[in-house]
Amino acid sequence: MKTKRLNEVVSLIAQLEFQSWWAEFQKRRAELQEAQKRYEDSLAEASLAEFKAELLQKNAIDTLYRAGECEDTAATLLFEGTELENRSYRAVSDFEEQRFYVSELWYRLGACEKAFEEHREAKPQFNGKKAESELKAAERAHRAAREDYDRETERRNQLWDEVERIWAKSAEVNLLVAEHRVRAKSIRKEAEALFSLAEEQKRRSVDLRAAAEAASARCEGARSALRAALNRAHDEFACATGADFLYFRQKGSSKRIFCVSLIEDHDKYNVELTPLAVYVVDRQRGVAFLEPSVVGEPPSVQEGDRRFEDYFLRGRKGSVISIRPAV
């Protein structure tokens, strides 16, 4: 790094050689920025595709579990339906038995009724104690047969109600089994579609990851080209190079360095940076504190004195300052 005066740095910047280097540097930097942007975009896309694939896979597994649950419910209901069917056979058998029994009681009741009627009709002809007691016995037998018949008829009816209840429940369960089976089938299909989408997304993410790697390689190439441009500046202009500045030692000062900004910046530094503007920095602090460089002579002592004379001895030059009061 050679020492230079400020005017030498300024005239170097104006030279055709430097300007052509600057054009190349800007081109390389733009290429790097473009490559970086592409890399970041493709990396983001690849990551997004991987995330989507994972999410789809997870959803597919969850959906498959849901299909399984539906199938389990259908199986449980089917088992319940079979049990109900078996119960209905037993209930029908009980009902049939009771029906036969009630028929027998009905015949028996008929017989008792006939016997009772016969005794009652015979009573006026055979008046006597025996006839009286036989009529009473026939009456009791008839009443008992009636009671048996009524009770067992009631039980038969109850058994039939039970049969019908079981049949209704069984029909309900069978309908639910069918519905759950259809639903399970549809959910399983949904899961299969999700698995297929997840696979597709995985393949896409692999392609995108490969594209991101290619973009990374292009980025590295652009970075090397930019580094080469900076190295060329180092060799051709005898300056030290940073990523955003070129540095020239100031002639006649061991502490002061001229730096040429290669960027425009409004935030990061203590002053606003303009591309190719020359700043002065201390060799220890570097660009942590930049001072604008001044081309030309500083104002003479006399000029300064005159201003002070004007102000202090010839009356005030500036206006009286006042602050607007708070409203």
Partner: peptide
Amino acid sequence: TAENLAAFRKQHRDGFTFVVINIARVLSSR
């Protein structure tokens, strides 16, 4: 910033003095 004002003083001492005078004028006016 104060640091930037100090850089101004290094380069333009008289200018800096006038800035200080102007601040003093405002404070005096207040």
